[in-house]
Amino acid sequence: MSEKIVIYQKPACSKCRATISLLQESGQQFDSVNYYEAPLTVEELRKLIQKLNLPVRDVLRKDEPAACNLIEASDEEIIRAMVENPDLMQRPIVVRGDQAKLCRPPENVMELLK
């Protein structure tokens, strides 16, 4: 695979740091996006979720206090809430081409490095 690798991460997150370490060990070039400093738009997050091929609710960090307000929310409302409050989004997400992986556990990134 020669597509560009991008990791969407939060520097303080241990899973993000572990995934970055795996990417570095692989020797492959990648870009890192701290989505707290460079917030995602609704459209960008929607495209990420499509690449993940997961239900929107699987990308929601349900243990976050603000998530309890989203029990009855539509997918679109959840996406908007995650854009407004990035703590609600599962992380890290690694993208390569048209594929993306939620790297929890970090070893999930290996599927994109084959």
Rank of each mutant, 00 (worst) to 15 (best):
L22R: 10
E64L: 00
L88H: 06
L113W: 05
L102N: 10
A66D: 10
L112I: 09
I78D: 01
M110S: 13
Q9T: 06
V56L: 07
Q24L: 12
I79C: 02
K62Y: 00
E107G: 04
S14A: 13
E76T: 02
S2M: 05
P106A: 15
S74L: 09
V42D: 10
D87M: 08
V95H: 04
A73Y: 10
R80L: 08
E107C: 01
N53L: 01
E111V: 05
N85E: 12
P86S: 01
R46P: 00
L23A: 03
D31Y: 06
A18M: 02
R46C: 01
E107M: 07
Q29G: 02
I71P: 00
Q50A: 13
K4Q: 15
V95F: 07
S74I: 08
I5R: 03
E84G: 02
L88Q: 06
N53T: 08
C16W: 11
Y35E: 12
K101V: 10
P65G: 03
V59Y: 04
P86C: 08
A100N: 06
A12H: 05
E64H: 08
Q50E: 14
L52F: 10
R61Y: 09
P11Q: 05
L70S: 11
S21N: 15
R104Q: 12
L70N: 11
I7W: 03
V95G: 05
K51W: 02
L60Y: 12
Q9S: 13
E76P: 05
I78Q: 04
K10A: 01
D75C: 02
L70R: 13
K4A: 10
L48A: 09
L22M: 13
D98W: 03
A18H: 05
I79L: 01
Q99R: 14
I93M: 09
V94N: 07
S26E: 01
Q28E: 15
R61P: 03
P65K: 07
E77A: 09
P39S: 08
L102K: 07
S2F: 02
E84W: 01
P106I: 06
P105E: 10
E111L: 11
A12C: 01
E107P: 02
P39L: 02
L22Q: 09
N85S: 09
M1P: 11
E3R: 11
D87H: 13
N69P: 00
K114T: 12
E37W: 06
S14W: 09
Q28N: 09
S26D: 02
V109P: 10
R17K: 14
L102E: 02
G97H: 13
E111F: 12
Y36E: 07
K101G: 00
V42F: 14
L54K: 15
E77I: 02
L54S: 10
V56D: 01
V95P: 04
R80C: 04
I79K: 07
K15F: 13
E72Y: 13
E3Y: 08
I49T: 08
L22V: 03
N53E: 14
Q50W: 09
K101W: 00
T19S: 05
G97Q: 13
G97N: 13
K101Y: 04
V6I: 15
C16A: 14
R91F: 05
L48K: 08
E44D: 11
Q9H: 15
G27I: 08
M82K: 13
Q9A: 11
E84I: 04
E76M: 11
C68N: 12
I5C: 01
S26Q: 07
C68R: 15
R46D: 15
E84Q: 14
S26M: 06
V6M: 05
L54I: 07
P105W: 12
V83A: 07
N85Y: 10
K47A: 12
